[in-house]
């Protein structure tokens, strides 16, 4: 308990720093899955470890101890966690849960809105063309999803670049990329340390769709040009001032497409997997330690009442006491 309960925090911090870097050297499909696993496991580890720490504080409240029939003094004697740490953990956990709830509500509203707009689209085809000269292209998820492209975008691309654009958006829909995005957003809402994973994840999904498009078109250069030209056309149309500073993703995508496909590396995956396994194992270890601590505090409480004069109420002896 003393150390193992803090391991999930350490793993989260390490992954928050390393995962985005690793994500750029892995093939995008693997990177996306790796980031999704990392976000999910560390979010659970984070919440679990905070709960265990918070519990050690809550368990020392006399009313709680009374209900749980354990001895507060025995718990205090054994407990290596200071009350400040326990209270802090409880606060962080509460803030995370509230923020997770808010983010989940927001994403649900957005999904409903997207669904409603999809239902209102005039045609029943996969592709919806907006009669608009400003270049836009995006995928509207659902079953079936829709690809929305403006006339302005289609007219700025060559025949094969157009094929690349459609293949890219189809890959987003087919591989359900919005579910990855939602997972990353929710885990980042629970734990702000995971935000870099969400950012890297968004980039990796675009790369994944680019690679799928390159496979479909059979030429990486064409996809590179499609992405680059679409971005330049969109930039010429309108640059929202607030977003202009973020960028950087499109040139990286184009660069990656102009370079040979990334090699399949297993070492970063194995290392990440080991970290996640350590996170899970230490959480389980901390939980069982915490369980044992409560058990012995319950035994102490039972021993105290057994020696005291009868309180009228018969107390069942916890069956795990005095075993050894």
């Amino acid at each position: 308990m003393l150390i193992s309960v803090y391991v999930p925090f350490a793993v989260t911090a390490v992954l928050a720093v390393l995962a985005p870097r690793l994500a750029h050297v892995l093939p995008p499909r693997r990177a996306a899955w790796a980031l999704a696993c990392a976000a999910l496991v560390t979010a659970i580890g984070w919440a679990g470890a905070l709960s265990l720490l918070a519990f050690t504080g809550v368990a020392q409240i006399p009313e709680v101890a009374e209900r749980g029939r354990w001895s507060v003094s025995a718990l205090q004697a054994e407990d290596p966690v200071s009350l400040v740490v326990a209270a802090g953990s409880a606060l962080v956990l509460a803030a995370g849960v509230v923020s997770l709830g808010l983010a989940a509500g927001k994403q649900a509203r957005l999904l409903v809105q997207a669904r409603r707009e999809r239902a209102r689209l005039p045609q029943e085809s996969e592709l919806v063309v907006l009669d608009d000269d400003a270049p836009t292209a995006f995928a509207l998820p659902g079953s079936p999803g829709r690809i929305v492209v403006s006339r302005g975008m289609l007219r700025r691309l060559t025949d094969r670049e157009r094929e690349a654009l459609l293949a890219h958006e189809r890959a987003h829909l087919r591989c359900r990329h919005h579910l990855f995005q939602i997972l990353w957003r929710l885990t980042a809402a629970l734990n702000p340390l995971l935000r870099p994973l969400a950012v890297a994840g968004g980039f990796v999904l675009e790369r994944w769709a680019d690679e799928e498009a390159a496979q479909r078109v059979g030429d990486r250069k064409i996809v590179a040009h499609a992405v680059g030209r679409a971005a330049l056309a969109s930039a010429g149309a309108s640059i929202p001032a607030a977003l202009a500073a973020t960028g950087g993703a499109v040139p990286q995508r184009v660069r990656a497409l102009l370079a040979p496909p990334p090699p399949r590396r297993t070492l970063p995956l194995v290392a990440g997997g080991l970290l996640l396994a350590a996170c899970c194992a230490s959480l389980v270890n901390a939980a069982s330690d915490s369980d044992q601590m409560v058990d012995s505090a319950q035994c102490a409480a039972y021993a105290a009442t057994a020696t005291a004069p009868s309180v009228g109420e018969h107390r069942r002896e916890p069956d795990f006491c005095f075993e050894d």
Binding site: Q181, E206, R229, L232
Partner: peptide, 30 residues
Amino acid sequence: LDGGSDREAVLARFVSELSEQDEHVLHQLL
């Protein structure tokens, strides 16, 4: 689409916005 970065989770846009420097780099690459 006009709803900030939260939309990006649901709507997969083909290209994100460019900074001025991005634009410059892109021209070079292309």
